[in-house]
Amino acid sequence: MIPISLIQSTAEVLMDKAAIEIPQDYLDGLQQAAKTEDGDLSSFVLKAMLDNYEAAKEDRRAMCGDTGVPRWFVKMGNEAQVEGGMVAMETALRRATANATNGVPLRPNRVHPLWRTDHDNNVGIGAPEIEYGFEPEGEWIDLITVHKGGLFGTDYRMLFPSDGIQGIKRFYLDSLMAFGKRGLACQPAIIGIGLGGSKDTCMALGKRASTLRIVGSRNSDPRIAEMEDEFKELGNSIGMGAMGFVGKNMVIDCNIEVGYCHTGGMPMSVHAFCLSSRRAVARIHVDGRVEYRTDPDWFTPYQRRETVDWEPQREAAE
């Protein structure tokens, strides 16, 4: 049984870490981009961002004033149990979100869509989102918080099999062009593409591809992995850099995730995880150990399974 107090205190640490510490994989990617960038203005921007990450860590202040829409992904090993059950856990995550908003401080972004009611704590109806995943074995629980911008850089479109790869490329480029100009997407970004699923799942897949996979990771399907390389290069060949200035670096990496969709369709979503790609992860073990990391490691073989039953023996033999 994992104590509820440990879940809340760990969640508060995660909110702080996500807001302040740029993940190493994104930092490495941006440093590499800064080396290759030759546009005057976009080089200046990348250098300022690298300075900003340092300033955030030195001062222990948030790296970006816009907290985005803080949210949670929770993954549990099949044998994990939480003191007080899942309702207690959701309460703990909502408390941690509210406490960290005041504590770090973060910007209280969340308001009612119509009445603009603001509780000044990033908590409200459906906020923060809490999504779940499970793994076949283990008594641990992974808490993942993601602070992703909430306004620009994302789009959805129902494509069809006859649109083909060229249609996918066009919508990808359209999304980069539309939100890259003037830097609305806060690029260079980790671009996530969701392909397939039902409409809502398609959005969730793309969001998870951008936020729950690290720079340098590749899809386990080798043909999709090739597309990821190709799309990264395509995005960086536009000639647009940071803030929409002339430059070479728009895409730090491109991650694609797929789900089975309606036989007549090929829905697609595009998401941009920005210059402040904020994510933090902790695994809480049943014995009370807490391990912090920045790789959510969300897309395991189990998450991408295609079969009716899960047979770990077969997976291990492959």
């Binding site: 200046f44 921007v45 300022a48 961002m49 300075d51 900003n52 990450y53 300033a55 955030a56 001062d59 202040r61 948030a62 790296m63 970006c64 004033g65 816009d66 830097g183 806060c186 940071a242 803030m243 920005c274 210059l275 402040s276």
Partner: peptide, 11 residues
């Protein structure tokens, strides 16, 4: 600049 030089501007 960036966007998102929040810590630098905060200073």
């Amino acid at each position: 600049v960036g966007y998102g030089t929040g810590a630098l501007l905060g200073r």
